[in-house]
């Protein structure tokens, strides 16, 4: 028998629940991480080189999906996101191969990373119907009023995914954004985008409404400024500015000031940006960064 000739996957963008190529028609070659010895990594695939117009379309999709996703019950969002973890588990082997290639990990380390990513997703999914109880509550005002505060999603959040941690880092920034009802436009790791594309395939097959998560692959420095300055984007996570060629996170934050986006700065001191250790146990901060507090008053009378 002749050996099976592999059917290769085309790695495309994920916008509004669909898998388009870049409107620019461009792609770029993605290679495996260099070997320890420093030999260049092998060719893996051609990924779509997303453009500012792809980002624009993704924002439209995210804005369109926001009312329904934010308006879904927290229980429903939790169920849908847990389903994502189920589908990820089914694809664990594929993720492990892609992460190993992208990050140059041993198969065992790659498997552990994928497992951590799946567990991270489950951890965040469980927060959907608990956030309001932890972060909201009754305010005992000095008057005959019922006064209650509760968290609400900020809106459309642009996310620069971490450059190095292609799956665990990605999950660690996307899940906290969408669990509370935000919708996301994610710029995948520039050089390690393939696990992100596979994640979109999990999202597309797990009841996550189209447009809730949109993923653009391509050059971070090309796409990020358009998202940072986009007036219909409510917030931006600059995690992926760390280690991104040609990206100065302060410039992005400055552009974000034009419509007072909520900005989650990259880790690090001063102007430097470092990618944190994503294996560390998370806290609420990546969720609270993209939440608004709404306070409602009503008189109490007969």
């Amino acid at each position: 028998m002749s050996p099976h000739v592999e059917v290769r996957k085309t790695y495309k963008l994920y916008i509004g629940g669909k898998f388009p190529r870049s409107e620019s028609g461009r792609s770029y070659a993605v290679h495996a991480a260099p070997s320890r010895a420093g030999r260049p990594g092998s060719f893996l695939a051609n990924a779509a080189a997303g453009s500012r117009k792809d980002a624009r379309d993704a924002v439209v999709a995210a804005r369109g999906a926001f009312p329904t996703w934010a308006g879904a019950t927290a229980y429903n969002r939790g169920q849908v996101l847990y389903r994502v973890a189920e589908v990820m588990q089914g694809r664990a082997a594929q993720f492990a191969d892609e992460v190993a290639a992208a990050e140059g990990l041993t198969p065992a380390r790659a498997r552990a990373t994928v497992e951590a990513a799946i567990d991270r997703w489950v951890w965040y999914a469980g927060w959907s119907d608990k956030l309001a109880q932890i972060l909201g509550g009754l305010n005992p005002v000095a008057g005959p009023y019922f006064d209650i505060s509760a968290p609400e999603p900020t809106g459309v959040v642009a996310v620069l995914a971490p450059q190095r941690s292609s799956l665990l880092g990605l999950v660690s920034v996307v899940a906290p954004v969408v669990v509370s009802g935000n919708t996301a436009v994610v710029v995948a790791s520039q050089d390690r985008p393939l696990p992100a594309v596979t994640l979109t395939e999990c999202l597309a097959t797990s009841d996550v409404p189209g447009g809730v998560v949109n993923v653009i692959t391509g050059r971070t420095a090309e796409i990020a400024p358009w998202l940072a300055s986009h007036r219909d984007v409510n917030a931006i996570d600059l995690a992926g500015a760390a280690g991104a060629d040609g990206v100065v996170w302060g410039d992005l934050e400055g552009a974000a000031a034009e419509n007072l986006k909520r900005v989650l700065r990259p880790a690090g001191n001063g102007a430097e940006a470092v990618e944190p250790d994503w294996t560390a146990t998370p806290d609420l901060s990546r969720m609270t960064a993209f939440l608004e507090t709404k306070t409602v008053w009503h008189p109490k009378g007969r």
């Binding site: 005002v141 009023y145 006064d147 507090t293």
Partner: peptide
């Protein structure tokens, strides 16, 4: 109601 403020209310 309108324009109610209180130290306990964000």
């Amino acid at each position: 109601t309108f324009n109610q403020f209180d130290p306990t209310s964000p």
